[in-house]
Design a protein around this nucleic acid. Structure first.
Lengths: 141, 141
DNA sequence: GGTTGACTTAAAGTGCACTCGAAGGTGTTT
DNA sequence: AAACACCTTCGAGTGCACTTTAAGTCAACC
């Protein structure tokens, strides 16, 4: 209720960690709204901080601007779109989890390579053993 | 040793999951090498499959082309660069792990939002409770 | 002998998400 | 009165990693 505190774009930008350029760009794109004072100068409130924060969580999970726009439109269309929004978030979540799984798979190879380098340096791995052969050791099952 | 089997670029592209364009581009950039037959046509061997596979693991963990180029140069410079290469991989690994941690943090908020939607739909969360308030429940400690 | 797949260089195009600048304006602070 | 922060439109620039095209040549397969 009490959104007394008003932030102009410069201050707001610092609070949310975006540039003023980006804030205007997001507004153009329909992702965020701002209010205007009597001189036409944008201002934001604490509610806007929360909203931008949430947008950044969505972006942080890999959601694209286009999907974000779609989400915002659904939101504006009222509670009837909650199931659709839920589905969007679920898909985003599933995708992100798949990305993490893939990333971790790549990371595992990378970790083995680091170990292999260490083995080469301290001679606990034979000079003759290639990384490919070394990797085979871990590919049982 | 026995790298009898030769793959021309089209076949090789399918094997490694890259386009022929990309393979030539990577060769331009110095990331991969190819051999040539008597007509000047590129061919690759099983060793090249492994190498591209490894490159893709590195890319998969978020390594940039420029860093990949640097890595390849170090590799070409011999065993003396193993510590430097190891460091590159370690940094890539650390960065990727930081990325995952951040991603998971964002995912957690997203999961809560999904739960919140579910709570709204089945009325186990009061109509009056905002997501922001709901989130506070999980921010103790 | 036509289709397919390869070759070359160099340049332009794509997609995403900003990021910046020009040019001219208003209002507040020092 | 200058400096500063904001406003507008809108087009151009950035960075990354490809992706495609053009235009011409060459060789193998059916």
């Amino acid at each position: 209720m009490a959104d007394e505190r008003r932030y102009r774009i410069g201050e707001f930008a610092k609070l949310v960690g975006l540039s003023t350029y980006t804030l205007r760009y997001y507004e153009d794109q329909g992702l965020i709204k701002s209010q205007r004072d009597e001189n036409g100068v944008r201002y934001y409130t604490d509610l806007d901080i929360r909203w931008v924060g949430f947008i950044l969580h969505l972006k942080g999970t890999g959601m694209r601007l286009n999907d974000l726009k779609r989400y915002v439109k659904l939101r504006a269309a009222g509670d009837a779109t909650i199931p659709a929004r839920r589905e969007m978030l679920q898909k985003t979540k599933d995708d992100a989890e798949a990305d993490i799984a893939e990333l971790q798979m790549h990371l595992q190879v990378l970790s083995h390579k680091i170990d292999w380098y260490d083995g080469k340096v301290d001679h606990t791995i034979a000079d003759s053993e290639s990384f490919h052969d070394y990797l085979q050791r871990f590919n049982h099952q």
